[in-house]
């Protein structure tokens, strides 16, 4: 593709990088990324991917903006309260970078629609806040051979892992969702707003590294941090031959909608 004068200016700081350059920026501009969840993680992910010029961004989220979201979901503004999150996010993305094509799905990501939606994308980003959908994203991507970025935040902690076919998946590390009763209840499940930005931008950087080939992805490495001590660590992980979905004798061969803890349903 030939960049026009505006695009050369807009993407100049990427073009200057040896590891991105003109070729890398072209790959970014041709990329199609699905972000599951337009909330705390989805907001910075969508912002940075849009700013970077990702060609097509898909956004799936069934929620509408609530006042309690604004403490961390920075793509939504006060006047967006009650608006579908995907619509609010699409409006901001288009204002940030009109080059980006945004496709919205104002619905839940479920076992019924997962394969049909992810098939149109090159990479999937988990920006959700509940275990059932995290496992659903993992299983759908592993079974479809689709790379994805797992991300999770709670209180002051964040963790992320990048998956490419053949590397350790989320289930290799965590076999199944915790039972609904074991999930922190509403009163326990606060989150420091800025943590969403910390983790979401790491996930966005992984997406850009994936498409440009720059550096080493967080594949077979789980990165976690705690913002109170501000300590980051990565632990090496590896594909688990007993993994229920990518192991030698998989028991998960179709998609499952796990039960969601009651207080996770209304956030």
């Amino acid at each position: 593709m030939d960049f026009n004068e505006e695009q050369i200016q807009r993407y100049s700081r990427h073009i200057l990088l040896q590891d991105v350059g003109v070729e890398g920026q072209e790959k970014i501009c041709n990329a199609r990324v699905l972000i599951v969840g337009a909330g705390g993680l989805g907001a910075p992910i969508a912002f940075y991917l849009a700013a970077a010029g990702i060609g097509t961004i898909g956004l799936i989220d069934g929620d509408t903006v609530d006042l309690s979201n604004l403490q961390r979901q920075i793509i939504h503004f006060t006047e967006d309260v009650n608006k579908p999150k995907v619509l609010s996010a699409k409006e901001k993305i288009e204002r940030l970078n009109p080059d980006v094509k945004v496709i919205t799905y104002h619905k839940l990501f479920t076992s019924e629609n997962a394969f049909d939606i992810i098939k149109d994308y090159d990479f999937v980003v988990d920006g959700t806040d509940n275990f059932p959908v995290k496992f659903l994203i993992n299983d759908a991507c592993v079974l479809a051979g689709k790379p994805f970025s797992h991300g999770g935040i709670l209180r002051f902690d964040g963790q992320t892992l990048t998956y490419k076919p053949g590397t350790a998946c989320y289930r290799c590390l965590f076999h199944a969702p915790p039972p609904p009763g074991a999930v922190p209840t509403c009163s326990q499940a606060g989150v420091l707003g800025a943590i969403a930005g910390m983790l979401g931008t790491i996930q966005a950087a992984e997406v850009l590294k994936y498409f440009t080939g720059a550096g080493d992805l967080l594949t077979n490495r789980l990165l976690s941090f705690n913002a109170k001590s501000m300590e980051f660590r990565t632990i090496n992980v590896h594909p688990n031959s007993n993994c229920p979905v990518c192991g030698k004798h998989p028991t998960v061969t179709t998609l499952i909608d796990y039960e969601q803890a009651v207080c996770e349903i209304k956030r």
Binding site: S12, I15, L16
Partner: peptide
């Protein structure tokens, strides 16, 4: 600067 080198890289590409 830095559009000098940006333009150079665009042409080199």
């Amino acid at each position: 600067c830095p559009m000098t080198f940006v333009k150079t890289k665009i042409e080199l590409a």
